[in-house]
Design a binder for these strands. Structure first.
Length: 558
RNA sequence: GGCGCCAUAGCCAAGUGGUAAGGCAAAGGUCUGCAAAACCUUCAUUCCCCGGUUCGAAUCCGGGUGGCGCCUCCA
């Protein structure tokens, strides 16, 4: 562990490389944050959680980390969504209601919706999602299903894109706090960095690498020979499949927009090319250089950002500065749902917020960490239940150990065995490209050792046992800070989990307590037959009881 | 079509040249009035298939087969 032993897989080279900070002891890391047009889903959560642990570990190793994660709050998706949110009537009757949170109703049926600006997709009306070509004009919405077109009239004021994105920044922060993500050091927003964005585009235009065209500005890919070095694509092959969308003013098909001229009614900012807004990608170039400099240490995101997003960022930034953008590119793997990637067109997106109603946030976090960050991970009920059961084991252990150690000084002296080996194993796994699963294996050893010492001490010397237990408990604190797990008081976590299970299963806690009292009485009278009968009755309710030195406790069976 | 990833026990999942972590499930045991929890033991001569390199390969190379991702917005 430490400042020189970390190795990281770099997408640029496809290899694990020693982490060599630009400035010894310091790390600048930029992670592409959310486009805030909706709630985040569990796939987003997995990526952000991975980088949260990576940053925590770098700090644990002693690095002075500057962690930047942006909000893309100016974007087509936000504008598109804001333009359709509201209540719409057809022939004077309520027809369509689209809420900002993605829910709604259509012709009396509950739906989920999304839009790309040219069509409206409704999920939940039929078995298959309905995708209607859509036109918006002066408070009217024309939907064109096969057959007769529908004309809808807006009844509520249009929501501004600013209002929509501001809301989802707040929702994001709420969601992510539930997952115990630490706030980054800087969370820049596109809307607050227009001067920086315009400046970098001007620089590219001045260098004749970008060109203005009818209010748009495009990056000319052919003027940046290293294009596609991250994704390792062949430009000729790409051009064969490329198509130019209607209305775009590109010179060459691969060119991409740095600045887009505003259409009427759209939010816009002033620029040398007229009113408009930044294209996707340029905001990250502008904001990363502002907060981390032209060259920085690490840049993260999920796999799908490799192309085109990170490729374009590299082209823009490096063409503008003449320097290498970033030394190490890190990409997180996808979360799969029932064997497939989540996608809106399939209507199988699971929001983080919805997932957290069914599974404990920390269990979800544990689930994310059970697989290497670059590997795909399959989201399913069994894995989540396993994760939650495992967390129960960890917290039960901590509760027991904390009770044992309460109010006792550790004292000086030797410890039994080698308690430090688990932490060493943990660090070695984390050093090796942040091997979460490997690290968790060491955590298992740590907990097994604590349980052994409390339940079946291998030595009689009580002071020795206590010292060893203290040492192990301290190490749990260390791994806890890195993994973002076991951060709650054990009793509180266990009780909260039981409360949720009690609600889901419809168990009456008062009745459980009454039965337990009856059994305690029976046991005191040595009426074991009756005691076992009560145990059986509790079991049919889904309740398991445990006789402990402190009395009888209970839990809900899985 | 182009680029890339993956394939390890019933299940999940580490392991990139030196003889298969960890978890779940299962079986036996210790403890317990009985249980539960916890702990101990057992559980892959073998890593999709076929070749090759090597003293030695799950790990490297070639060829298959199967699954997935990106190439259009996507974490």
């Amino acid at each position: 562990m430490g400042l020189d032993s970390i190795r990281v897989n770099n997408t640029m080279t496809g290899q694990k490389e020693p982490l060599k900070p630009l400035t010894p002891g310091k790390i600048g890391i930029y992670v592409c944050g959310p486009t805030v047009y909706s709630f985040i889903h569990i796939g987003n959560a997995r990526t952000f959680c991975s980088f949260d642990v990576i940053v925590r570990y770098l700090r644990y190793c002693g690095f002075d980390v500057k962690y930047v994660r942006n909000y893309t709050d100016v974007d087509d998706k936000i504008i598109n969504a804001s333009r359709v949110v509201g209540r719409w009537t057809r022939d004077g009757k309520d027809s369509l209601l689209l809420e900002a949170d993605g829910s709604g109703t259509f012709e009396g049926k509950k739906v989920k919706w999304n839009t790309d600006g040219a069509s409206l997709t409704l999920v939940g009306v039929d078995a298959e999602p309905l995708k209607y070509p859509m036109k918006l004009e002066g408070g009217q919405m024309m939907l064109e299903p096969v057959g007769a077109p529908l004309q809808l009239s807006r009844q509520t004021p249009e929501m501004s894109a600013v209002e929509l994105s501001a809301r989802f920044v707040r929702e994001f922060e709420t969601d992510v706090a539930a997952l115990h993500l630490l706030p980054p050091d800087v969370t820049p927003k596109v809307s607050e960095h227009m001067p920086e964005i315009v400046a970098i585009i001007e620089k590219l235009v001045a260098k004749d690498i970008a060109y203005a065209s009818k209010g748009d500005v495009y990056f000319q890919v052919s003027k940046y020979p290293q294009y596609a070095k991250l994704s390792k694509r062949n430009l000729e092959d790409m051009q064969a499949g490329e198509r130019v969308s209607v209305g775009e003013q590109k010179r060459e098909p691969l060119d991409f927009a740095l600045w887009k001229a505003a259409k009427p009614g759209e939010p816009s900012w002033d620029s040398p090319w007229g009113k408009g807004r930044p294209g996707w990608h340029i905001e990250c170039s502008a904001m990363s250089s502002k907060y981390l400099g032209d060259t920085f240490d690490m840049h993260g995101g999920a796999l799908d950002l490799i192309f085109p997003h990170h490729e374009n960022e590299i082209a823009q930034s490096e063409a503008a500065s003449g320097k290498t953008l970033c030394n190490c590119w890190m990409h997180a793997g996808f979360l799969d749902l029932e064997g497939a990637k989540m996608s809106k067109s399939l209507g199988n997106v699971v929001r983080l917020r919805d997932a957290l109603e069914k599974v404990d946030a920390e269990a979800l976090r544990y689930f994310f960490l059970s697989t290497h960050y670059r590997s795909p991970i399959a989201f399913n009920d069994k894995s989540l239940a396993d994760a939650e059961a495992r967390l129960e084991y960890f917290y039960e252990t901590l509760k027991k150990v904390d009770e044992r150690l309460a109010g006792k000084e550790a004292g000086a002296g030797p410890t039994h065995g080698e308690p430090g080996k688990w932490l060493k194993q943990f660090e070695e796994a984390m050093d090796d490209d942040f091997n979460f699963a490997g690290a968790l294996s060491a955590v298992s050893g740590l907990f097994a050792a604590m349980n052994e010492l409390t339940d079946k001490p291998p030595v009689k010397d009580k002071a020795l046992v206590a010292r060893t237990l203290h040492a192990l408990r301290g190490m749990v604190g260390s791994v806890s800070g890195v993994l973002g797990l076991f951060e709650e008081p054990p009793a509180a976590w266990l009780l909260r989990r039981r409360d949720r299970q009690v609600k889901t299963k419809g168990i009456d806690p008062t009745r459980v307590e009454t039965l337990i009292a009856a059994r305690t009485t029976a046991r005191a009278e040595k009426n074991f037959q009756e005691a076992d009968r009560v145990r059986g009755e509790l079991k049919t309710l889904g309740v398991e009881i445990m006789d402990t030195p402190g009395g009888t406790t209970w839990k809900v069976t899985a």
